[in-house]
Design a protein around this nucleic acid. Sequence first.
RNA 1: GCGCCCGUAGCUCAGCUGGAUAGAGCAACGGACUUCUAAUCCGUAGGCCACAGGUUCGAAUCCUGUCGGGCGCACCA
Length: 573
Amino acid sequence: MKTNPDWKQMRSLHLISPLQIRTELAAAMTAALASKFQVEIPSVEVLPSRNLSFGDLACNSAMPLAGKLKRSPRDIATVMADSISNSFPQVDKVSVDGPGFLNITLSGEYLAEFTAAVAERGLGRFIPSEGKGKTALVEFVSSNPTGPLTVGHCRQAVLGDAVSRLLEAVGWNVEREYYFNDAGKQMERLAESLASRYMNILGVAMEIPEGGYQGEYIKDWAEDFLKEKGDSFKWPEQKDDFREYAASRAFVLISEDLKLLGITFDRYFAESELIPDAVENTLKLLDTKELIYKDSEDPRKIWLKLSEMGRPDDRVVVRDDGTYTYRMPDISYHLNKFKRDYDLIVDIFGSDHIDTCKDVETVLGNLLGEEIVSTRLRTILHQFVTLVRGGEKVKMSTRAGNFVTLRDLVDEVGSADVVRYIFLTRRAEAHMDFDLEAAGADNDENPVFYVQYAFARISGILRKVSDVESLLHLCNAERLESILTGDRERNLMRLLETVPLKVSAAATSLEPHRIPDLLAEVARAFHGFYQHHRVVDPDNNEITAARLTLCMAVRSTLNDLLTILGVRAPEKM
RNA sequence: GCGCCCGUAGCUCAGCUGGAUAGAGCAACGGACUUCUAAUCCGUAGGCCACAGGUUCGAAUCCUGUCGGGCGCACCA
């Protein structure tokens, strides 16, 4: 998926990429308008047709240009149509329809060449590689290391991994990073909660602190702590021992949870690494820029002047005991990320982070320049997940310790593929009801199987054929075009041709939810084709070869799209 | 009260940098297995795109307001 198209080789085959044909058509039409009307013309846009019955590509630029050129939209569209109608072998038909739409139908020759090339060399090389040679950092999950991951983290984990994979699909070199908050007040509470359980085992009364952690897993940790380290520890004398032990156990817990979904990180970045040097440097920097001030009553307490930067309220960044609030190391962390010089920094947070991440962005803008921050930092805030079982909402409460964990979810659903796919079907900013019964169902209520089944079917066909390679060599683009003339075959090729640019658009907008839609569309078109056309015909090698070529192209497309979601492409089901 | 997100078919959701008849899956109804896996296919039905204004040649899409839901408004993260 990472290789770049070899344009020269394609030229020799008369094949140009989906992106290039669109670019060339737009350029030709823009040039024709400029020369005919002798005015500056904003570049026209060639877009996918909304409805395939109009054609493959459409352009509506004639309508907005009508006022400026003082001509009717249809006249303008006609000028555009004339400029491309006979000069592109990739174009079969151009028409002007309705109020001034320009509709373009791609030629069978081009579609056949494209399909053959995808079958032979894979779809990946046709995806425009905008990210080639560039690096991106994607931060996600970053949950407090205080316990197992929950359903909310699960959505974020899946989303972050898919965003990363999507960026990789268009050529980015991606690093996945988990910011490990191991230095804050929550860690203190966790350590004390552990100490409390430990003391209880030893028969000493000690309450779990206010806001502490009640989960059963802490009891297990306490028992292990006792076994491994002995019974001589006291709170708060050996505070650090409790804290370190809890953090390391939480770390293991979290990485095992992530492993259930097949997610790994390139780096776990510990907040404690920033303390105190990096944070003190950041404070000095903020002070130099006069963005902080001392509290009027307690000079050890330090405030951030957010209200002067257009945010609603000033915030404390250093408490009177000298410890930092969440925002402080987070600003340092982001400065660190910028210093590492990525071309793109993606932050993924739950919607409860809205205020803090706006604050951090604002401060970064003041320190580094708004231009740099707005072009290089992109934040995805996802909404929460409501679990539904049998039409009833599943109550979740972190405090009481009866939350549904990521592990529970994957166990109940029974498949990481299903969990990933369903989470990725909704766009990040939309609320989401996750129906445990439907997700756990082993039937056609489950959208994942529909797509995977298409891949498995193709694999089944391939198993029927003894020598796929030599059969495929029987089939060149010309033959493909003359044999695959059915509507279903033709529409399948048309659909495949749009995939590279749709992937590219999804990556540009950091929206992996577009991929499941696309997958379902490809699978649907394939299932329809499969039902109506027999692929393997022992008496007709030519037809077999042509349809097999199409199957190979679909297979490659499904595989690449499933890879973006991190969902398996099974040979058998 | 303030900020952000959401409100599209019975259910879950796409479509939202404005464009030609609003889409899909599931559920419902009617059909299709002596043929490469029927976890499939074909067909039918289902919608004042929350509501009210505005911008324009054109609005589910942009703006304003109202109503409804989620999240936040910590010296937690």
